[in-house]
Amino acid sequence: MINSGEEMFEHTLDDYAHSNGIKNVNEYFKVLFAILTMLVSLISTSPVIPLTIFVLVTFLIIFKAKIPAKFYLKFIAVPFSFALITFVFMAVFFGTGTSVLNLGIFNLAVTVDGFNLGFLTLARIMGGFSCLAFLALTTPMNEIFSILEDIKIPQIVVEIAMLMYRYIFVFLDEAINMYHSQETRLGYSGLKRTYKSMGLLASNLFIRTWLRGEQIYITMESRCYGGSIKTFKSRKDIGTKNILLLLSFESFLLLGTYLTWGLKII
């Protein structure tokens, strides 16, 4: 799926989640690592620790999980370009203090306050996003579902999420097929035709999804569906070594956060 429908649809990270270097590492370890590190990145008041997190997690993603660097860079390019725009925006518009650089037009100037705030936000986005990427690229969705069940998210929500997850890929394939056949019939030449084709695609998809939904229910009912889906779980223990590793890593980050509290770039 990664290479089909390139122009029209987003790539998904799912393929890598199922085949990466640390696929067999305990799922609790991976999820706790990603979330805790994300939170440390969020609470730090200086850009030092978020940037450290970004470098460390990127290292883990590329060298431990063995995600191709090119794919990872492509994946983070879009959020980072937005983060960069935000940084410039904040540096110019969000300052009240002394200015360090006068832009010479419209009385705009880069201020110390704005620069620091913008840079901190940029660093936090980089830190947080690398953790999100770690989670997305190394942990398959079914492991996340079993964790959601363990933390007592209502059964109905997890079940709907599971079915949704399954059908996202079924419909993505169908949508890509429809898109390609519309494209071969010049369905996307011109703005007006694009809207018409896209509307056709989406409405047809809706009708198909609807029929599919009715059929699934019949199929499930004929297989003794009594209102809840039973899943098979094999529980692996997180392991003392992993817990110690995780705790020492997070304490190291927290110590860094404490030491660099309020530190500013300029």
Binding site: F9, E10, M162
Partner: peptide
């Protein structure tokens, strides 16, 4: 709703999937 009409559970899930696909269409 799903307790009263069990058949609506897959439909809800599928609507969610539809919303997801719709949100991954790029709109000129």
């Amino acid at each position: 709703v799903t307790d009263e009409h069990p058949e609506s559970k897959p439909l809800l899930a599928i609507t969610g999937a539809f919303i997801f696909i719709l949100s991954s269409l790029k709109l000129p």
